[in-house]
C-alpha cells in the first residue's frame, strides 16, 4: 500500500458517502443517473467475486464489502425508495452501448482466459466508462447540484490517484498491469472536461452550469 492508493481509496469512499448523503439529506435523486449507479454496482459485483475466496487484508475486505453494499443501496434508493424524484427522461444513455463492447473486449483482451479473470477484466473496462451516463445526463440537463459535482470530483480523482499509484508500483515494486493502467487513464481522461468546469466554476462558488 502507498499514499497514492490509500488517498485514492479514501476519495472513492468519500464519493460514495457524499452520494448517499446527498440522497438521504435532500430525500431526492434528482440529477443522478441511475444507469451509472447500476453500472458501478455491476463493476463491484464482477470485480469482488473473490471476496470470500481470496483474503488480501482486513482493509481490503472491509472496503470491498462497503463498496458492494453502498453501490447496491444507491441503486435501491434511486429505483425504489426515491423513485418519484428519479429523472428518467434525462437518464437516457443506452447501457448496452457500454456493456457489450466491454464484454467483447474482456473476452478478447485479457491476461488469462478464465471466468474469474475475464469478469475482472470486464469490471476494469466497465468502470472506465460507467460514469458516461451521468456525464451525458448533466450535459442534457445543462447543470448539476453542487454536492453532485463534489461527488464527481472525488470519483474522478480516485482513479487519477490510482495512476500515480501504478507509476509508483512500476518504479519501486516492478508491478505493472497494462489493462488496469490503460483503462484507468481512459477513465480519468473522461473526467477532464468536468474537472475543468469544477475548478473554474464550483470552486469559485458558482453552480455547475454547462455552457448552453
Amino acid at each position: 500500500m502507498n499514499a497514492f492508493r490509500l488517498v485514492g481509496d479514501l476519495c472513492h469512499l468519500a464519493a460514495i458517502v457524499l452520494l448517499l448523503l446527498k440522497i438521504w439529506k435532500s430525500r431526492s435523486v434528482a440529477g443522478l443517473s441511475g444507469k451509472s449507479q447500476i453500472l458501478f454496482g455491476l463493476v463491484f459485483v464482477t470485480r469482488y467475486l473473490d471476496l470470500v475466496t481470496n483474503f488480501v487484508s482486513p482493509y481490503n475486505t472491509i472496503m470491498k464489502v462497503f463498496f458492494l453494499s453502498s453501490s447496491i443501496a444507491t441503486v435501491y434508493l434511486i429505483y425504489t425508495k426515491f423513485k418519484a424524484t428519479y429523472d428518467g427522461n434525462h437518464d437516457t444513455f443506452r447501457m448496452e452501448f457500454l456493456l457489450i463492447p466491454c464484454a467483447l473486449l474482456a473476452i478478447v483482451v485479457n491476461h488469462e482466459f478464465s471466468p474469474m479473470e475475464i469478469l475482472w477484466t470486464f469490471s476494469i473496462y466497465l468502470e472506465a466508462v460507467a460514469i458516461l451516463p451521468q456525464l451525458f445526463m448533466i450535459s442534457k440537463t445543462g447543470e448539476a447540484e453542487t454536492i453532485t459535482s463534489h461527488y464527481l470530483f472525488a470519483l474522478g480523482s480516485y482513479r487519477g490517484l490510482y495512476i500515480m499509484n501504478w507509476l509508483y508500483r512500476y518504479y519501486y515494486e516492478n508491478n505493472f498491469d497494462v489493462i488496469a493502467v490503460v483503462a484507468g487513464i481512459v477513465q480519468t481522461v473522461l473526467y477532464c472536461d468536468f474537472f475543468y468546469l469544477y475548478i473554474t466554476k464550483v470552486l469559485q462558488g458558482k453552480k455547475l452550469q454547462l455552457p448552453a
Binding site: 481490503n60 490510482y162 508491478n175 498491469d177
Partner: peptide
Amino acid sequence: SDCKKTKDEL
C-alpha cells in the same frame, strides 16, 4: 506474469 501482483488493489 508480474501483473498478478496488483490484484491486491480494490
